[in-house]
Amino acid sequence: MDSATVQLSRQKQHKKEILCFVIGSVLLCALFLISLFIGKYPFTIEGLLSGNERQWLIFKMLRLSRSIVGVIGGFALGVAGYIFQTVFRNPLASPDIIGVASGASAGAAFGILFFSTSLMVTACAFGGAFLAVVFTLLLASIDRSGKNSTVVLAGIAVHALAQTILMCLKLIADPEKELASIEYWIMGSLNGINSNSIKFNILLIAISLVLLFVFHRKAVILASDEGEAKMLGLNVNATRLIVLLLSTVAVASVVSMAGLISFVGLVAPHIAKRLIKNNSIATMFMCGILGSILLESADIFARSAAQTELPVSVFTSIIGVPFLVFIILKGGLKHE
């Protein structure tokens, strides 16, 4: 293959990447607009333009916030999934590998039982997720070799501990009210999100995402052996700690607003890597866009598929599982 052919195939790949971004962005914008107009309380563009106060209130307080969380939350889950899969060199790695989701669930259950206000539930879920990850990383730091497998093992231990705490909290919860709230929270939903409760979380997500993009090059080097990464000038333990904590903050901020949302962090990076076939910063951005598309479309279905609102995870799984099966089948055929 001569250099002209190599350059030509590079340009072809570059064009394909741009096309993916354009299609992804257009699709996301369309979903965002559709999501603004779907819900229990119908409203129209005419109503908004005529200055109908009730419609404006619903639009500003509920719909806009919900759609924004769909986009930003999905983006954060996609990017965090990419980071976890890269750092742990494991295509099945997700934020829960270090106890984020189970910590958030235990925290949310604690909030529902002892505080009951939605703001406190959000704060407790965030605190639970963060505590679980800090505890995982502290446990892992006992082994000074700093191996990835130690972090995973510590994550399994913390996950089990958080699940036990969650079970105990469920046992003391009132089956009629609190237990149902805990279960519903665990199923995940963007219902109940309003403009007052999301500002802080959105800010945290934005800051962590910006920093994760800054750390992208370092995160990719973490996908080598520890010794190799060290000899590429990386402070392996510190960099891994920073990158995992930033991803945790992003995921915890989403989970504390919307409950557990399955599959987005797992599936979005796989689709992005299929499309871009690399681990460049563009792939990471594509993971974010695909995460947003997945969550926004799942939320639209959750609001419109039945008379009552359904948990969003039902639809992220319905969209995610076939994709995952397709990827496994295609990957398997390729390796044969």
């Binding site: 899969q85 060199r89 080598s224 052996d225 190799e228 060290k230 590429l232 402070n235 690399n278």
Partner: peptide, 27 residues
């Protein structure tokens, strides 16, 4: 020396690279 300063002065070719993700040869 920090790892960074050390790596500015010494480079390593390990027996086998542990890079476990899809990444271009140039990268």
């Amino acid at each position: 020396w920090s790892n960074r300063v050390f790596a500015q002065n010494c480079s390593l070719v390990p027996q086998k690279s542990g890079i476990g993700i899809d990444i271009s040869v140039l990268d």
